[in-house]
Simulated assay, not measured.
Amino acid sequence: MTRLLDPLRDEDPLPPSRVDIDQAVRIGRRRVRVRWSGAAVIVVVVAVLVPVLGLPGNGGSSVGPATQPELAIDYPEFDPMRRVVEVGDVRGVEPFSYTTARQWQRVNLQIGKSGFATLTVYAPGREATDAEGIMQPETGTPGQPVGGRASYWLSRGSNEVLAWQWAAGAWAFINLQSADDGSEPDRDTMRAIAQAVQVHDKAGEQVAMPFTVPLPAPYQLIGTTTQLRSAGDPFVRTGLLFATEDPADPDRQYSGVSVHVENGSKMAMHAGANQNVDGHPAMVADQEVIIFDAADDFAVDVEGTGEADLLPIARGVQLVPAPSDRSTWVTQPVS
């Protein structure tokens, strides 16, 4: 069992982590190439495509308390093709992936050398849930205010969660997991991250993709995933998520299809290639199809449940003429 939201690959090494990254809409598939909880997730952290995310340098300064202006919320959900969450500079904290959905948005963060955190921001009026069920922040231990609003500490399994309202009736949660050295989650770091979070208006930052794909029946677009890199890093893994319903719970398993494109050395190795598709080496399995060397050293990677016919979906992906040039990416990738 792996996840529909799968922005991470083992491209460039980071220290190993025990964190379960991007616990979101999940699907079954035959193979697991990304190593999750209990193993190493190898990924480089920094931003690409997301100017709304403020990324710190190695010597970033800590963020002190701040009060967000009162927001006039007039929309019931997020646009899955826009990113609305900004994480300002916090010493030792860097975003490394971003997932959009209509009812929530999620940013995964690296903490120090081997710690990780998940920031989940819910749309106004949405009930927050996790793998343990409904989250009731007011039943937790009161903490210091965040953005002028009350915050609460919750125990969820073995992890501690900081919850606060980023606007009236709209909750945000930070789940910080222990580093591999056994150190406990740092409440000061969690508070600093919370103080650095801003949720922008419904316009947000437009998501762009280096490809187009026909809408795979019977699904609808439910979100996007992007592995974040620095502006000068050419590595790309980004994609679209399709399912029959919008995921209300980031940690619940859903059936669906993910369509990603990726470049870099891992795809250049043609690992698992077992046939030729339209003149390109490809790996074709029941729950995953990868077409290598589709264009400009990019591969097309489609994953889904057994009910989906993945090969026609993969063959329908059309990369833009120069996918390495982000200025050519499109904001309406579903045709």
Score class of each variant (00 low, 15 high):
A150G: 02
Q110S: 11
T305K: 01
G182W: 03
L4V: 10
L154I: 12
I193D: 00
G182T: 05
A192W: 00
A168K: 12
R31E: 10
R229H: 12
R126Q: 15
A231T: 12
D20M: 04
P7I: 05
F242P: 03
V236D: 06
L49S: 12
T224S: 14
A314G: 07
G64T: 10
D79P: 06
Q275H: 08
G143Q: 07
G279D: 07
G112I: 09
E77G: 05
Q23H: 07
E160M: 05
A24V: 05
M1F: 11
P250L: 08
G157D: 02
W164S: 02
G147Q: 06
E77Q: 14
L319E: 08
R149W: 00
R126F: 03
L154K: 00
I27G: 01
V19G: 02
N108W: 02
I291T: 03
A282H: 02
G182M: 06
F116L: 08
R191Y: 15
L241M: 14
G272S: 06
Y219P: 03
V146R: 01
L14T: 15
G316M: 05
V41G: 00
P13F: 06
L154H: 07
A196T: 00
G239N: 03
E86K: 13
S158I: 04
Q253D: 11
R126W: 09
Q103D: 12
V330Q: 08
V334G: 05
V213E: 01
F173L: 14
G57C: 10
V199N: 02
V45F: 04
Q220W: 00
Q318P: 00
P56S: 13
G143R: 05
S178Y: 00
S183G: 13
R102P: 05
S258F: 03
D325S: 10
V84H: 15
L53M: 13
A101V: 04
S255P: 03
D246G: 10
T225R: 09
D6E: 15
N276P: 00
G148D: 04
V87E: 05
P216R: 04
A66Y: 04
D89E: 14
F292C: 07
T139E: 13
V334A: 09
R126A: 12
T67V: 15
A285W: 03
E184R: 14
T328W: 03
D186G: 08
M267R: 13
V63N: 10
P234H: 13
G279Q: 07
S183N: 09
Y75L: 09
P216L: 07
Q206E: 07
Y122M: 14
E303Q: 14
E262H: 05
T120N: 11
A217V: 09
L55N: 04
F292I: 04
Q195W: 08
V257F: 09
V277L: 11
N108M: 12
V197D: 02
R26M: 08
S255W: 07
